[in-house]
Design a protein around this nucleic acid. Sequence first.
DNA 1: TTCCCAACGTA
DNA 2: CGTACGTTGGGAAT
Length: 599
Amino acid sequence: MDGGAGGGGGAGPEGALHRAGARAGEALGLVVLPGAGVGLAAPGGALPLAGDPAALVAHLEELLHPRWTWWSAAGTAGPLVAAGVHLARCHDVAAAHRLLAGGGRDDPGAAWAAAHGLPEPAAPAPGRAAAHGTGLLDLDGALEGGSGPLERDGRLAAGWVDGRALGPEVEPAERLRRAARWAELALRTAAAQRRALEGAADPRPRPAPPALALQTAWSESAAALLAVELEVTGLPVDRAVAEAVVAAEVGPRPRGPAGEEAARAARDAPVHALLGPVDLRNPAAVLAALRGLGFDLPDTRAWRLERLLGAHPAVEALLRWRRAERTATTYGYAWLERHVGADGRLRGAWSASDGGAGRMTAQAGLHSLPAELRPAVAAEPGHALVRADLGQVEPRVLAAVSGDAALAAAAREEDLYAPVAAALGVDRPTAKVAVLAAMYGQTSGAAGEALRRMERAYPVALAFLRAAEEDGRAGRDVRTWGGRRVRTGGGREARPDPPEEVLAARGRFARNAVVQGAAAELFKAWAATVRAGLAGAGAGGRVVLCLHDELLLHVPQRGAGAAADLLRSALADAARRWAGERVRFVADVAVVRRWSEAK
DNA sequence: TTCCCAACGTA
DNA sequence: CGTACGTTGGGAAT
């Protein structure tokens, strides 16, 4: 970063940072102004630094190895990651807020308010809550009056939350000072969150590992940074193979809108010949046409049509049409065009903890690639893919978080269902169905007797699940093992007397959330540990896909064996921190050239 | 233009 | 054997 720093004096920012109370390994607030500089904040003061943000941050990473503390990785880390800077540790205020508060809000205004005991502010204008807005300009009284980022009532000022206060139209030196001030507020918010995480009451029947909530906040923070990296890195795709897979389903790439239209008509023709000129893309029309053939169905879902395969040739044609249409519209040439870059990387936006239970989500179809396309996910020359997926993760998680000693004993086996089957006195498939039925709240009576035996064999686990279900039915929030608050919908749309259907759905949701959500936490702790290990190895390996219980790494060929070992050791480390020694977690690991070759 | 539903891919 | 998510197209509501 030679010579880029201003404000620190002398050889660099070290002196000023030291005077501001920055210490190696400790929290350091960070705001990035792309192309202009950074705002830093340590416990004793804030420091504006002009210069290239990536160079400044890379230097400080090496010098201080801090826990970078920002409002959100999504808003701050993008330019740094794009410039190739590795950031080892962070506290992501948005991620910690999602963990502590649940719900959909994670903007600075909401996090600040929660951390200071203030009521949640009005939601920022949708779509305009950019990290550092470029919009102008009518800086309101809160800014112009010199009152800075805080309103009189203690809330964050709107002009700061929406980024206008840091916009490029602000005079450069003032803009940097504001960035440092903004970093200071992120640091203060993080400190309050840390106190809340450390002081969190432990409502569970048995004690969690020490500081689990704080550890979880940090691994969730790492996942938020990983989400930024995943989008920058992308998933390596062999475009020729992908196009061949598409072509096999829908034919050659159509040329222009006319070709598009012709291909569409060609897809429809065989079904029209058998079913009449029905609008195949309108389910109601398809339903009516099928009724004309004598099939009276509640809907036209594939599994329902498959039962009628022998009855009329139109059924087979329709099912074939559905597959082709899915490929053409969702995973076809247009999709490749939109999401696969010139460098052969499939890119989409990632979210580190979306939805009710806090799983990762991804756009651009990254989480729902059809199996037929997996041969197209391929290592680049000189590289390998290393794939690992957790085995039977949800029942193992249930054993860990419920504290059921008998289930934990079963979870010490490579195949958890074998001892469960023995305990229940049933065969393995029945045992598996019984466990899943218990975890997810069965409604049809298929596993009735096995479920009653589950109750006798694993009463602690079943009581844990029943308690979550009761909380959900009552509209009470539940907390996952790592401390994530999951709202069950009792608050919003509070109808006076919800029908049984709604109550039952809330119960199933809560029963599922305490398992699925906890599994998501363990997964992210694993992913964060793997990420750190890859960086430490220094061989350029990257996580390229996270898929709920599966990790895919892209590594130089000669590092593949080490990466496979890392996946196993990282799981052991993460699981020990997360659950102690009582439960074993297992991963299936394979070094492959194509994703389809694993498993 | 916005919102909801059906359908289906993944875990 | 239920939950979660994203994407698409169509139709109704606005």
